[in-house]
């Protein structure tokens, strides 16, 4: 139980990134009429950017 809790608490940045950040970037781009580069879909782009940012936060312990 304690181990699971620690794992959940530790993983919050990456969970947040895929649960919320990715769809925010995706739908934000669509709302602003922005196209993703390299012919990617906005969702794929959001997965790369949001996932990458989440990974950065997970590893470094900070978003900024």
């Amino acid at each position: 139980m304690e181990r699971t809790l620690k794992l959940v608490a530790y993983s919050l940045p990456i969970i947040f990134a895929f649960a919320f950040l990715v769809p925010v970037i995706d739908q934000g781009m669509q709302a602003l009429g922005l196209a993703a580069p390299f012919g990617l879909s906005t969702l794929t782009f959001a997965l790369v950017v949001g996932g990458g940012w989440g990974l950065f936060a997970q590893i470094t312990g900070r978003w900024l």
Partner: peptide
């Protein structure tokens, strides 16, 4: 803001 980061 900094003190709301995961490692704060």
């Amino acid at each position: 803001v900094r003190q709301r980061q995961p490692n704060a």
